[in-house]
Structures are given as structure tokens and as C-alpha cells.
Design a protein around this nucleic acid. Sequence first.
DNA 1: TCTTACGGCACAAACGTTTGCGCTTCTTTT
DNA 2: AAAAGAAGCGCAAACGTTTGTGCCGTAAGA
Lengths: 341, 341
Amino acid sequence: MDKKLATLKEIAKRLNVSISTVSRALHDHRSIGIRTKTRVQQLAKELNYEPNQTAIFFQQRKTFTVGVILPRLSEAFFSSAISGIEDCANKHNYTVLMGQSHDNEEREKKIVETMKNHRVDGLLVSISKNTSSYEHFEALRKYNIPIVFFDCIPRMSNIHYVACNMQSGTIQAINFLIDKGHRVIGMINGPEKLLACQERQDGYMKAMARNRLKFDPFLLISTDLSTEMVYEATRQLLNSKRKPTAIVAFNDYVALDAVQYARKEKRKINKDICFVSYANLPITNYTAFPPLASVEQFPYQQGQKAMETLLELIDSKKDDSEVATYFKIILDSQLIIHENK
Amino acid sequence: MDKKLATLKEIAKRLNVSISTVSRALHDHRSIGIRTKTRVQQLAKELNYEPNQTAIFFQQRKTFTVGVILPRLSEAFFSSAISGIEDCANKHNYTVLMGQSHDNEEREKKIVETMKNHRVDGLLVSISKNTSSYEHFEALRKYNIPIVFFDCIPRMSNIHYVACNMQSGTIQAINFLIDKGHRVIGMINGPEKLLACQERQDGYMKAMARNRLKFDPFLLISTDLSTEMVYEATRQLLNSKRKPTAIVAFNDYVALDAVQYARKEKRKINKDICFVSYANLPITNYTAFPPLASVEQFPYQQGQKAMETLLELIDSKKDDSEVATYFKIILDSQLIIHENK
DNA sequence: TCTTACGGCACAAACGTTTGCGCTTCTTTT
DNA sequence: AAAAGAAGCGCAAACGTTTGTGCCGTAAGA
């Protein structure tokens, strides 16, 4: 049995050459004669030689591995994003170490710890919406492990991130509704501390103002995105004094929950009340009352872009040029209007 | 700046002790005196010492990393499964390296290669439905990397796997339909080469036979699960001589496609034609015409179980007891009847 | 013919850890 | 009081690779 994997040493011994010669021969180094080169390469093939990556990682202080930390893969946004990340990583011979925080701060911290111990070359993270302290990320600075945040960005200064500008899409969404004749428009937003929520709110207010519509704070409700709280928010909106005829929901899941609640209250969807949301998930194709339009956030592209900038950071680390500039990459969101069937 | 991470050597030098003493002290080894032990541990804390895992991996020939290869995370089944895997892995201080094959054989092979090079301690894989040769998995035997397959199992002998018995759930599904008065029941199945499809078929035939219903081969259609082919299959079923009043679909996605096609043909869902499927995805809660019932496959539990058995294999490798017995773990699927709303 | 150059290879250090073994210096036992 | 044991620590090898440096011999230039 070839239980024992072949090593450089083994090859060297059999060929009566030095280990360094074998190493260089396999790397096609110019200082090795063509004769020995082929002899080495041939024997390596015969013995099924595979370089021991763990040894190389160790020796080079580099693992060609990046860690990805995100709330949950069951959300289509993230599974899309990680595909972008993975494709880009593979293209550059990196692999991805995965960790789901499940929106739990403790888990997030533990994952960061594990990744640090595994000596990942860099980290890609979309923070948990319940994370309030950022020490665990700050700590990584000391270890010189670059981080690129995406989608859910912490409110820290001096960080690299890739995000989708929610404001532009929100404005498009509101304009779309106003074009359709709506005047009283509600919004079911997410946790206020998230940047993306702030942007949604800003877009909402800006678009209303530009159209000379009054901003009613009662029509803008923050939630934790749980079904219960979304139901409650929908209830409040539907029963508020100034009856909204349209609601912009934080994302498709929220929209679907809101639709469901509205139907329980016997409202006619797309008649009494219309919905617009964010994400543009494939499942909305199958639902009874999909949102009229969705703001697309391009998760795949975000993941890809985040990975690209992380690779840049990793490479720039070599020539220890202090990174004085921080990447802030913003993709524009875009309203996708669904066909009426 | 503490750019340079502390090492055992560094600590040893400062304390004028040997490296081995430091190592043992930090491991609470009994042969080290309490005095030096505390001195070492204290300094380690001060210097923010973190063991260099890459060195340890290298030295111990073990990476505490398992590779997970699956078709795509965007399918709810797999994102659920990987959660089970991850939770179990974390519990045992393992991390997971991720790779999506996107049902592409070449990608699958490349991922296997990468994982091998990264010296993962073991592999968890759900094979691509387009994979026809299994050499890349066979090859891993030589390297002594254990594999546990789950969900999509290759037709190889002498492998470990965890799967869900689709036959039992299928029989339950057919019985459910027969109870409801259906007599002519169609099935839209997946690729024949998948074991799970064979089981569905066996369950279908068995259940029909037990109920003394004739088996009509025209009512059982295999597809590649693409929307187009599902449409075509649905068309054939709806227009076959013996009009089926119910259809069992390979999974919820297939069911939703089939429903969509049936509606295009102006069939009344749950009246002219009923659907039952597999998976029990959350999205079916939001759809207009969810299947009447779904066969639950317990992806989280499958992932968990697969990870557990992989860990067992990894541990058993130490005491080089030849594994003569192969794990074949079968969970029972179970029909979940959806509430009528 | 003498110097210079270079092609082709070997030596050895280094990366950070773990661990078997051996060496002291005490303490205990007989 | 001598022998035996134990407690506490150091030495050094090993894991597999990369890479800077040095050496030898042959070929090219003057």
C-alpha cells in the first residue's frame, strides 16, 4: 500500500540528489538541469507525489484560505453572495472556511476566534444584526488579518467594505409607487442600527420630500424582522389614521409576512394595499401575491467584489505598505418591476 | 507594535527556560512545577500568545478541518444540512471548508483535489447529479481521507453514507392520496441514476400494488429537474389517457413548477389535480397553491448525523483498525400533511 | 593561457510545535 | 546511610517545505 505519502525527501533519496534540487526541479526552477529535472518530475509522478500543503502553509505563513462569516445560509441573499465569493476565491486558488453566526453575537465571536486560530489570510464578514460590540473584529488588526465587510456593515471607522446603496433603490421604489398614484406610503424597516436601514429611511424621506409629500413618522416602523413584529407593524400601518395604500417592506420575507397578515385582515392585495420590497428572490415567482417590484441588491456581485478587494488587501500586505486608504465600494441597487401576470 | 506574534521560543527566552517547558506548561503538563507553570502562563497572557495552528496542523498531521462538497447552497435542503454539519463540527472544534459543485462534474473533481491538498481530515459529500465517474472519490482512499456521503449517494460499494429512506415517505404519500379518494396517481421523478429516485419509484410501485391499483408506466416520468422538462412532464401527465387526479413531485421546486404549468393549462389546483411533494420548504407557506403534503427529509439531522459518523471515522483511523464495516445510516422520511387554510 | 562567468547542484537554516528521553536535585524508603 | 524513586526541567529530533548561499566544474572571453 502507498499508505505513506511521498515526500521530497523520499524522492531525493531514491535519485541520490538533494532535497532542494527536487523542490526546485518540481517548480521548474531554471537553475536545475533539464536532465535531472525530468528525472525528478517523472519519479514524482510515479510516486504520486503531492506537496504537503500544511507544511507549505506553515513555512510560508500563508494558508490560501479566507474565512466567511455571515448570519445564515438559508437566506437566499447570502447563499448567492457566498457563490460569488467562492467562485472568485477558486479562481485565485483560495478556499473558503465557512461560519454562520445565526445572528448570535457569541457565536460570531467564537467563529472569529476559530478563524484566527486557523490563520486564515483574510476575513469576509456580514455581521450579525445583534452584534453590538466590535472588539472581536478590532482584535484582528493586531494579527494583521484584513477584513472586508459586506452587506451588513458595522458602524466602525477605518474599515473596508462592499455594500449596496439602498438609498437609490428606495428612491426608485417610492417614485415607482408615486407614479402609480400612491400618495400615502408606509415602510416596514429593519433594526435601526443597521446602516442599510438608515439608507432605506433616508431614501424614503428624500423621495417623499422631492415629491412634496408629507413625511409621517407613524408610517415608518422599525422591526427586528421577526414574523410577529412584522405582523404587528403591518397591523399598525393598516389601521393608522392616514391609510397607506402602499407599503415598502424591508425585504421579500418581510413583504410576504406582511401580505399574509394583510390577507388575514381581509385586505385585497394590489387593490386596497400594494407592496414593494427588496431582494427579488426567486420564490416570489411562486407566491400568490408577489411584491409589485423589488429592489435588487446583486448579492453575487457583492460577494465577488468583496473577495476581490480582500485579495488585493492580502497581496498588498506583502510589501508592508501601510494601508492608509480604506476601500468603500458601493454598488447601486436597482428596482426590478415584476411583470403583471 | 506587536506585529510579530509571540511564539514559544520568545516566551522561553524571556523566562530563561526551555521551549519544551513552555509548551508543557501551557498544556498543564504534570511534570512542570506549579511555579514555572504560572510564570509561563502569565507571560503568555501578557504577550497575547496564540499557538500557531498551522504549525500544529503540520506537526500533528491533522487539520481539524472537514471538507463539505455539495451541489448548491441556494437549495434550502443543503443550507439546512450544512447547518447541521457546522453545528456538529463546531462542537468538536472542527471547521468546515466549503465547496459547491453546481452539479458540474469538473468542478466537483477540482474541489476534491483542492480539499485533498488542504489535507482535510475528512470529507462530507453530496454528489452532483451529473457525476458519472467516481474515480476522484476512489482516489482519496489511497490518501486515507474518509468520506461520508449524504443525500445524493453515488452507486459505489464500500462507502459510508447517511441518507433518508424515500420509500417509506413515498408510500405514506401515496396512501394519503388514496385515502383522499385518488386512484390515478402520477409521479414526476428525478434522474434515474440517483438512488433517491429509485427509492421513490419503488415506494410508488409498492404502494400502488398494495392498494391493488394498476401500475401505468406512462404515469411515471423521469426528468432532469429543469423547469422545462418538468413543464413537459406535467403536460404529458395532464394529457395522458388515464387522467391522473394527483401528482407526486420530486420536490417542492418541481411541484411549484408543475403547479405553474397546470395553471397555465387552466387546471384547477386541488380540484382537477392535486400535488404532493418532497422537502417541506418554508417557502411553500407563502405560495398560492402549496402541495397538500410534503415528505420531510430532515436535512439538518442528516447533516448532523453525517458529521458525527465522519468524526467517528477520523478518530478510528488513529488506532489503525481496518474499517471492515461501512456505515449505512438511514433516517426515515415522514409525510407532513399541510393544514388546509 | 589565465581570468571571468555561469550552469548545476548540495548544504543548511528556518518556520513553530510536540514529545521521547535523559539529566539533575531532592525526597522518601529500607 | 545508602539506594530507590520522583519531581522538574532541558536536549534534540521530527514534521515537509522553501530559499539564501556556497561550491565545483566547464565554457566563454581576453
